[in-house]
Design a protein around this nucleic acid. Structure first.
Lengths: 308, 308
DNA sequence: CAGCGTATGCGTACAGCATAAACAATGAAA
DNA sequence: TTTCATTGTTTATGCTGTACGCATACGCTG
């Protein structure tokens, strides 16, 4: 049941599915569906009726096949959940595609996550410890981290900042969504829910015993919309990060931390491409050509042709 | 399955159980267990083997009775989960029992929550939207809010601050615990896990495509202990709250917001008791006696005698 | 003490879940 | 056409929560 790879056997197969590395066999019966169809069906089911409604039977029923057919496409339910997660992660645009400074972009990214969790509340019900990161999840991770490199923070602080924002957004979204789910489930608004239990609360809820809660409730502060609370917290979190970045001591040499991979030819760091461009393999055209000339004479097929 | 009251029928019964309001019938067969025994057994099971191991059959087995016997004590599993949650909430000491200013106390409270979630990781797997707050959960809620009243913030901001801290701690704890769970489940450390998939990552993980993640991984920043990350985030969150409180404009009359219930006799607000004392019902002894005298002459049994 | 009423304890039963294993159907390659 | 890998289906196992009916124990009233 635990997501993130069941056991160890299906793990590699799960990763292959995530990254679309499984080569199609050209022998045998033609598959009636694609993995993508199954994943999309499951996502639709989860969106519409919640994670509890996502069972192999229901998915098969929606697709018009038997339950066990699905196991020809997916090792198990855990892997399917991983695929679902990565599929919806593709909906959120890269954080570094937006213009502006790092704070603006980070804020936009957090809001995009918040919106994603609202579109697909079931994501937050899945364990996310060491996620079976697929291409979409990985691209998201990279893009947010890339935005944060503009802060000039050293590696560990950078990761900490990421974790802080991520933890807050996930936590706040979970609280808000659970509240909304209960509301939808019971068919009662928050106010109605409290009212229906009023006779009970009157018995236990002695105002003198819970003075602060009582007065907050009287002031109407306990039923303010959740969105405002999120915006409040987000602003404070970003404020604290900005302050932290400002107070960060400059490095001795006056430069800030670099987050580039060394050029495979000369070893110099490769500068980031612009948001619109695509990442480079070498630091310069000179190095690219040098590498090309250095590999050409051998003429091995091992080289798999140069970077499209 | 959804926690927080199944449907509407068992809801009141569930609340009665939470608050211990069910009167025992003195007729009929004596119950072999108490609700508390069942709850404690379930908590032990959840702590030891995770939430998935908590089934009515397993609980009954551990108690030495049949499955269906449990349903004589508890309406269903959802209510049992609520009881479990409130039971462990009793472990965390009241936030306002500690000495120090509001920041010190809030920090202590957050750390206590963090520790609680580590002792009982299954709490974070349960929906917590509009929780079926029991006495312990309510006392916790009240105590934290009471600590926050020292900030002098108005009601809505106060609740927002609470939600911010709560969301962050829950989110961070969930991330850390999920990671630990996966580690325990697979029996591999984070490093081993990555190493086992190295041959796969080499195929998809082109450093030039994910330069930031690659360099962070090379710098070892992705496998730092989670506790440090929590401390980092907590400090920043508290910093931001402190700044927010400092920048809060003073009220016109120079006073800060009050969070007291009005005295039922004279209407004046009742001042908070000290952390060691217990909450008061009236604002002063004079009012208490006045209320007593005003009720005495009628001599109605309605009065249920004065507040023990 | 007898007997009644009530509350508890238990066995059975059912619908739903994930999935293992064996078998039938399909369709490209030999 | 034969071969055989691949997909689809059928059947079965062991879980889960819980509705129902009946046996059992126990306090209260006679």
């Amino acid at each position: 049941m635990e997501s993130g790879h069941g056991g160890e056997a299906g793990a590699v197969r799960g990763l292959e599915l995530l990254w679309g590395l499984g080569e199609r066999p050209n022998r045998g019966r033609r598959p009636a569906f694609t993995v993508d169809q199954i994943v999309r069906t499951a996502v639709g089911l989860a969106d519409a009726e919640g994670l509890a409604a996502v069972s192999m039977r229901r998915i098969a029923e929606a697709l018009g096949c038997t339950t066990m057919s699905l196991y020809r496409y997916v090792p198990g339910k855990a892997e399917l959940l991983d695929l679902m997660t990565d599929a919806v992660m593709g909906e959120v645009p890269p954080a570094d595609a937006a213009p502006g400074d790092w704070r603006t972009r980070l804020e936009l990214s957090a809001r995009a996550d918040w919106a994603l969790y609202h579109r697909h509340p079931w994501i937050l019900r899945l364990p996310a410890g060491r996620p079976a990161l697929g291409p979409n999840g990985f691209a998201w991770y990279e893009s947010v981290l890339r935005v944060l490199t503009a802060t000039g923070l050293p590696p560990e602080a950078l990761v900490n900042v990421f974790d802080l924002v991520d933890a807050y957004v996930r936590g706040a979204a979970r609280d808000a969504l659970d509240a909304a789910a209960v509301e939808r489930h019971s068919g009662l608004t928050d106010e109605q829910w409290w009212a229906a239990r009023a006779h009970f609360w009157d018995a236990v809820f002695i105002p003198a015993r819970y003075p602060v809660v009582a007065s907050l409730r009287a002031a109407g502060a306990l039923r303010h919309p959740r969105d405002r609370g999120f915006e409040f917290g987000l602003r404070l979190v970003l404020d604290s990060i900005e302050t932290f970045v400002r107070n960060q001591p400059r490095r001795r040499d006056g430069t800030s931390a670099r987050y580039e991979t060394p050029c495979p030819q000369c070893g110099d760091p490769i500068s980031h491409s612009s948001p619109t461009g695509r990442p480079r393999t070498y630091c310069s055209d000179a190095c690219r050509q040098r590498a090309y000339r250095a590999r050409r004479p051998r003429d091995r097929s091992e080289g798999k042709s140069g970077q499209g």
